[in-house]
Design a protein around this nucleic acid. Structure first.
Ligand code: MN
Ligand code: MN
Ligand code: ZN
Ligand code: ZN
Lengths: 147, 147
DNA sequence: TCTCTTGCTGCAACGAGTCGCAGGTGGGTG
DNA sequence: CACCCACCTGCGACTCGTTGCAGCAAGAGA
């Protein structure tokens, strides 16, 4: 089943990668997970599909999916942790509440004006299309204000 | 010598931490390094000051410095790598060129308008004051254009 | 369908970072 | 200045992610 929207076979081939059962298991695992997922969870889900799949193969497959544009990475909660996400239709960033951990998506368009201003001011053309911005969500602000 | 600007002893005490030779060695190492530094380099520099200091103590000390507000973290070049920096006078973000690796500082004020707009639009109050934004620097853009 | 080549996999070994524990030390109290 | 206890350190063991290698299989070509 894997991915119902993208032609992952063509995409992998177009990037010079072979289509293997292990890579499809990892792709399935990513799709099944939905949103951002830790590599530990991908490993567990992939093993449910193929009990013999090795840890290193899962990491290498995630890398292949990212390089092919089928998956995105995002920094995790704990510094040094990487999370993975099957690529979405529309590019987006994330807002993460540092108190309660919930996340909201931020359309890439919302950041566009800021990116353009940085380009005018510093000459840098910003390419990141999957930022995770830390903040305090409206709910948690209420709770603090309530004290 | 350690830090000539901040009263690190008061700050550590204020956060409930003790002042130990090991923590000062790590603080010294951070100051000596100047800008963003890898934990490996902090470990090496700290060992030059105290040959018996343990790896785990260096990591725990870096954690203490970050929690006390004396140090900042930033994601490193390789995903999963954390860099450290002694806290600066003025809060700032970073622009990193994904081609040549050079970095420029971006004053926190430059991002302020964007942060305020996100707050209006989504209710999130953004707190991150040490972002690392990926992009292509002016130099590298010229080189690409030249082809 | 068969062959051949190249890239992929599983394995084992390694390095970076984390954690529990027993002994040592900072610093508050008198 | 001496005592004491909570906190900290060094150590060892562990986990997570990476890498080199030998055997295996994807898929192009015939
Ligand atoms: Mn996302
Ligand atoms: Mn910085
Ligand atoms: Zn919240
Ligand atoms: Zn550059």
């Amino acid at each position: 089943m894997t991915h119902n929207r993208l032609n992952y076979i063509e995409i992998l081939h177009a990037h010079g990668y072979r289509v293997t059962p292990q890579r499809l298991a990892v792709l399935d695992a990513l799709c099944a997970a939905g949103g951002h997922t830790t590599s530990a969870e991908v490993l567990a889900r992939a093993r449910a599909l193929d009990a013999r799949i090795d840890r290193s193969t899962v990491y290498r497959s995630l890398d292949v999916l990212v390089k092919s544009g089928l998956a995105l990475t995002a920094p995790g909660d704990n510094a040094g942790e990487t999370r993975y996400e099957i690529v979405q239709e529309s590019p987006h960033h994330h807002l993460r509440c540092s108190r309660c951990g919930t996340e909201h998506e931020l359309s890439a368009a919302s950041a566009g004006a800021f990116f353009r201003q940085v380009e005018r001011e510093y000459g840098y053309r910003l390419t990141g299309d999957h930022l995770v911005l830390e903040g305090v969500c409206p709910e948690c602000q209420k709770h603090t204000a309530g004290h």
